[in-house]
Design a protein around this nucleic acid. Structure first.
Lengths: 237, 237
DNA sequence: GGCCTATTAAAACGAACGTTTGATTTTAGC
DNA sequence: GCTAAAATCAAACGTTCGTTTTAATAGGCC
């Protein structure tokens, strides 16, 4: 077995431990021990710990992002020259993520939660890795959204894409943090059905936000600074 | 100075370092050193490192959540028996957070970003702390939303509240991660105006999502399993 | 079949960590 | 001005970390 399934075992265990306890709190000793491998195996296969987390993230992200591009290609081919519907685009991006990420062969949500956490990771190289891995896909999807929503300013679409990422990330990762605070706790096993209910709920929310009426922004400061009208008696203190 | 401003200095530095490098990656030596205090000062004032992060979070959260309750009280008093408008509620919750969190006396965004990151923190006691600190506020606001949106099922509102938290969290914390990936990079200094544009943009998005058409969920499994009607030729594979 | 390469194994390294101890200084009350 | 409590300080403790080193073990190829 020259291909070394030790490598894969380490990746699986690392993915799980990074998700459960975070990056710093998962020691290489714990990872290699649970993977039934030697401590030095990580350094051999991945050079160092940073290389390990990098490999963990890349392994799944490559597959997911390839699929996202494939689906988008298929949709655009089918639509010919007509722009896609926003719902198609949103589903192709976020739906693909959730469907792939929650499938059993992907460790059932483990990677999704790790990914969601990694996005807010302070570590520079993780952010850089994600930015690099996402660059193509985000670019393509943004342009698809531009065409699908020609009346919405591009800047606004970029922001809303951003907000959608946040809502999705959070829907996966912090799924219980404040839920528990409010004592929701699946009153009737109706909750926790997993993807079956989460995905349609999330999709409605995302599409609602994406197509919301445009905000009226404060006047840009390119004009004279105080040229802006304000109602007297504003609510600010 | 019996009240020890060493304590406050440590809190300020810890807040900043926790935000910049994460919880685990900020050592007590670095914190106390930058705060001009002795290493043992943290253990003296906060018992241990966990007590420190707890104090860092509580200090600001108390103020923010008190204000959120105060604003909600004022709104409900003013409205009498009539339900509030969703936009009032959303602004009272998220607008208050962003306005307070980005004011200079609060360290200008530092705490907001730390808070956003802490929500996805794997550590148990941090999640427990947040849940406890948020319990009252979330409860009150959820009920206000129930009254404001009587036609939307409560379960749906809870989920959408959840999504709104995610979008907001992300809007603050990961503000650059994938932004950079797509090469947005404030083309004209129009970006990065901070709260002035972020808040109205976010509010539009949140309200759009909150009031989105309801999703059609798969039939709950309380009824007979296959009693569900489906249009033939569904789009799923 | 013996050399080369890939892989594992065990042990040790130095550095950094959170925490504790005990002495010392500062503060406030009478 | 004395005393007790609060606060600060320097130093050390024991542990754990990521990484490296050295030796041993298993295949592929001529």
């Amino acid at each position: 077995m020259a291909e070394s399934d030790t490598r894969e075992r380490i990746l699986d265990v690392a993915e799980r431990l990074f998700m459960a306890h975070g990056y710093d709190a998962s020691s290489m000793r714990q990872i290699t021990s649970e993977a039934g491998a030697n401590l030095a195996a990580v350094n051999y296969h991945f050079r160092n710990k940073d290389g390990l987390i990098q490999a963990v993230l890349k392994r799944r992200l490559n597959a997911i992002n390839s699929e996202r591009l494939r689906v988008l290609d298929a949709l655009e081919t089918a639509a010919g020259s007509k722009p896609l519907k926003p719902s198609q685009i949103v589903d192709a991006f976020f739906g693909t993520l959730l469907r792939m990420g929650s499938s059993a062969e992907y460790g059932g949500n483990t990677f999704l939660r790790l990914l969601a956490r990694s996005i807010t990771e302070p570590s520079d190289f993780i952010r850089a890795l994600l930015a690099e891995e996402y660059a193509d896909v985000v670019q393509r999807y943004r342009e698809a959204l531009f065409r699908a929503l020609p009346d919405v300013p591009k800047t606004e679409i970029v922001w809303r894409f951003h907000f959608m990422l946040g809502a999705t990330s959070y829907a996966i990762s912090g799924a219980d943090a404040l839920h528990l605070a409010a004592g929701v706790k699946s009153n009737d096993a109706d909750d926790d059905e997993g993807l079956d209910t989460l995905l349609p709920r999330l999709m409605s929310f995302l599409l609602g936000g994406l197509r919301a009426p445009l905000p009226d922004l404060p006047a840009p400061k390119t004009a004279r600074p105080s040229a802006r009208k304000r109602k007297p008696e504003g609510s600010r203190k």
